[in-house]
Design a protein around this nucleic acid. Structure first.
Lengths: 340, 340
DNA sequence: TCCGTATTTGGAACCGGTTTCAACCCCCTC
DNA sequence: GAGGGGGTTGAAACCGGTTCCAAATACGGA
């Protein structure tokens, strides 16, 4: 019938077919008033005939807004990250923003992720979970007026949602002290890469504070750092349990590691909790199944709050360096008891 | 020193500072040859001074490519979806494409997600996981030449990665039949919404086929459909176990549901596997912990293959209606045994 | 030294929208 | 019937890049 327009219809095609200018089509699309009903009708028909749909890309460039918020998160497939993201998704559900997710598994990918967003035209806001933006990128984002909110990572200048890890360490340790334990070991993780926030460090601090408070000496040989993996935690626990004077309780900085500790105990024939008490951190789904005593941190809620804060900033609210500290809670199950 | 350029530097600013045209700056940025080293140096210095970084948005519009691939997935926080996405992330790791994730929790959000992509300028390719694109959107995407690959959802026209659910149903059922069971019940899920692909249906089919093959009658009262939740599966199992002639084995269409069945058994004091055998489907992490016998489906690999196929299509390869069927595997643990 | 050709370079068009601004039309009032 | 005002409308500038094309420059050989 006519020359093939090849690709999808453009706004100019609609305008031509409707016999109006592109400005009018744009007005109809965006619901601006001041278009005569007759004209509007003609435009709508043309849109329908051509099966036209505006290009989000062009629209975004023109508007200078991306209609998306970026989420940067390391190892997003870990149980705790997924739970946080679930919160983010929920928080963003009603908003007009889409979600662009960036998994970050290395220092290099971290740079790439932040670089992608720092100009501010890729996303209207940024949510960084468990990662600390490099200083230069942070500066750039500030210059681009890109709203940023951090979750589970401390930062001086930016709105932040934090979990009270120190209190969590204290809580776990106090629980064990109150049960009568004196020889309490700690298994944490020391991230090799410096870009991830090490919640473990704060948990260690809580552990130490609480021991001091109880008048118990912090023994060097009882404080160990490995990686987040179950396997490594297992071998660390084996070492601990083979000490001349082994601990009667082990506090692990994550549930995953606590499960590794449980494995080690099983391997050595140590009964839990009769001969060894174990406390984890996180309260992932598996913890309930394993009957693990643990410190529950509000993962879902941290993501939810992060998203809500970001939306507030996007609404124009000025949050500055506002920090929100979410509380933790001890969940006593069946892996802790009095010392032998 | 000079008038504030307010926002981030643009390519024109760089060109002006370097005393060259924008075309030359663009050439330097994109590594095109035919720029004299002296000129290139001048441009690079200007870029450095202005701390310039090109706008991805404008670049994409100009190039007509988004440098991203879209992933649409319902309930992406479910354990199986996460595992699939992990595969996708892995498959995309080396590629130049970023990942835009769309969680879809309702029919309306499904429409929105596909609508977002169907013009082809938001993403260079689309990966639909466990969702079936609406027919009109599929047509539109074809017109826009947007490559699409489906994972865990059947479609006539498009490259697809499928799990052999029928074989999985057969496998689970055969395992129970071989142990000597004759009264085998099935607990599946019947999605209310019609947009999600119901893998459960195929598993039911495998269950029925295998029973017929073994010469066992398919009893109406033994085939139940609920939702995916553990809770609902639990109450269905309670009903089944309270029948005059209860089943000696229950095959659940997912591990989550199998865990609900186990709960029901515990509640009624039925010992597993002595008095009741239970088989699940998926082999999520929890299954290993619960000692659940289950059918392992290659979740991670399905995502990985989907990503790889999409990359192939993006390379220009023509796949058409190519379908890849991934095999399943029985993992026998401790919730199955001979009937009482 | 001069000319021809190969290499560099910048102006301008383009990607597909939004928005400003001035022109236009219509209708009402004096 | 002319003047004035408000509601509609379209041309053109703009968002920030890429790239075509033709002009300008560099360089080799005669």
């Amino acid at each position: 019938m006519e020359g093939l327009p090849s690709g999808p219809a453009r706004i100019a095609d609609v305008a031509a077919l409707a016999g109006v200018g592109v400005a009018t089509v744009s007005r109809v699309l965006n619901g601006h008033a001041s278009v005569r009903p007759v004209t509007r009708q003609r435009v709508l028909e043309a849109i329908d005939v051509l099966d036209y749909r505006p290009s989000a890309l062009a629209r975004n460039l023109s508007l200078g807004r991306a209609h998306a918020i970026g989420v940067v998160v390391p190892f997003f497939t870990s149980a705790s990250a997924v739970e946080r993201i679930r919160g983010v998704v929920t928080g963003l559900a009603g908003s007009p923003y889409d979600l662009a997710l960036f998994d970050v598994e290395s220092e290099e990918r971290r740079m790439r992720a932040f670089r992608l967003f720092d100009r501010g035209d890729r996303a209207d806001g940024l949510l960084a979970i468990s990662v600390i933006p490099p200083a230069n990128e942070a500066a750039r984002m500030r210059k681009a007026r890109l709203p940023v909110v951090l979750v589970d990572a401390p930062y001086d200048d930016l709105p932040t949602v934090l979990i009270d890890d120190v209190a969590g360490g204290e809580l776990a340790t106090r629980h064990l002290v109150e049960l009568g334990h004196r020889r309490i070991a700690f298994v944490g993780d020391k991230p090799r890469d410096d870009f991830r926030f090490a919640a473990s460090r704060d948990r260690t601090r809580g552990y130490e504070l609480e021991l001091e408070r109880a008048g118990i000496e912090v023994r060097r040989e009882f404080v160990r750092e490995g990686t987040l993996s179950r396997h490594v935690a297992r071998s660390i626990a084996l070492e601990l349990l083979r000490l001349g004077e082994p601990p009667t309780a082990i506090f692990a900085a994550s549930d995953t590691q606590a499960l590794g500790v449980l494995e080690a105990a099983r391997e050595l024939g140590k009964r839990v909790p009769e001969e060894l008490s174990v406390v984890g951190f996180d309260d992932v789904e598996l913890a309930a199944y394993a009957g693990l005593t643990t410190v529950r941190q509000p993962l879902f809620e941290s993501g939810l709050r992060g998203a809500q804060l970001l939306l507030q900033v996007l609404e124009g609210e000025e949050l500055g360096a506002y920090t929100e500290l979410l509380p933790v809670e001890l969940v006593a199950r069946s892996t802790t008891g009095p010392p032998p």
